[in-house]
Each structure stands twice: as C-alpha cells, then as structure tokens.
Amino acid sequence: MPMPSRGPAPSRLPAMAIRIAPIAGILILWEIAALSGIWPRQVLVPLEQVGATLLALASDGELARHLSASLYRLASGFLVGSVIGVSTGAAMALSRNVHRLLWPTFSCVRQVPVIAFIPLLILFFDVEDSFKIVVVAMASFFPSALATHDAVRDIPESHREVARLYRMPTAPFLVRLILPATVPQVLTGLRLGLTRGWLSLVAAELLAADSGLGQMMEMGRQLFQIDVVLAGVFVTGLIGFLLDNSMVRVERHLSRWRTA
C-alpha cells in the first residue's frame, strides 16, 4: 500500500528551510565569531578554511583512506555485536534458565560505558583493527540485546495462546510469530546499537589508532590543525546521520503492518 504523503507538495521548500535553519544559524554565528578575531584563527578556524581542508583531504584520498578504515571496523563490529546481541536477547526472553543465568550480569555490565573498557581491550587485542571491532561489537551488543529481550517479552499472551492452540512447532513459532512481532522494536535497538557503535569507534580511534576518522582528528589535534579536527567532526556527524537515517527507512519498511 502506498504511504500517504506527509502534507501537500508546495510546503516542501519551507519545511526543508525549517529543518536546515538551526544548523545554518550555528554556522553563521561561528563564522561571525571566527571573523571577529576574539579567538586566534588557529583556534576558531573560519568555515571556508575547514571547507577547503575537507576538500583537500577528500581529493588526495586521505579522507577516503580513514573513512574506509572506520567503516570497515564499524561494519564488522556491528555485524558481530548485533547478531550476538539479538540472539542473546531472544534467548534471555524465551528461556527462564538463560534469563536467570545471564540477566544480572547483563544488567550490570550494561551500565558501564564501553569506552571504560578500552584500556583493558588494548592489552588483549591487536591495537589496529581487532580491538576496535571488539569495541564496536560491545557497543552495539547491549542495545540490540536489550531491545530484543523486551520485544520478545512484550509479545502479547493472546498471540502466544494462538501458537499453543495450534501447537506451532518451534521453527515456525520463531520465524512466523516471534520474528515479525518483534521486528519494529528490534530494529529500533539495532539502530541505537549502530549509533553507539559509531560513537564508540570514533572515541576508540581518538585514543589509539593508525588510521580511521578518529585518528585523523587526533593527528590534527597533535599538529594543532584544528581545521582537520573540525573536518573530522563534520564527516563523523554526517556519516552518523546517514547511517541512522537509512536504519529508520529499513525500520519503516519492515514495520508496514503496524500502519493499520
């Protein structure tokens, strides 16, 4: 079924303007402050210089190198973390024994920011890729596991009774009932996990890396090239935004049955 379009077409342009207004406002204030000379130009870099640096980084392949390193780590870490997260969450919700065994530990460890584990993880894993993949996996594990656990628990008893009544075997019970009933909530968890993974990855790269967006920013800081740091900030925000946005689209597509 076609989704009803939100509002008539003519209002598209003003709507877009409203969405962009806050960020445009920040950029304008920034530019004014940078030109005013309150802070030295090396500290508060004018926008055009950040733009030029970004272009330079993009054209000589430097940005692409860092970005692909980061995205590779994000993708592998997220894949591992979300798969383990979703299965752990489902297992905790479906089996009382698994719940008893894992839930207290899960609830405690969940409260510790992943970044706090970084010093420890550096000692155990190779400083380059594998350490960062583990960080991303851990960061995305918790939101996915928690969302899946809650989603499965939230399946109404009335649905479960139908399954009992028709003696649905385990495989179809999982594939036809548990999975579709939990898709919307699980996807929200995955989306959160992806964001957490991305944030933790950039943080980890700031602390220890040879490549990656975070490392690029850290190098910029050490060399007092604030324009490079800011270019990194822009790209980090943009990538995060695009990832989140695509997850929202997937979420909306797979939860169509909810729009009754």
Partner: peptide, 8 residues
C-alpha cells in the same frame, strides 16, 4: 477477538 496475526 479474532486474534489473527496482523503481519500475515
């Protein structure tokens, strides 16, 4: 209530 699964 009919208890049909809404996603099917």
């Amino acid at each position: 209530d009919h208890r049909l699964f809404p996603w099917m």
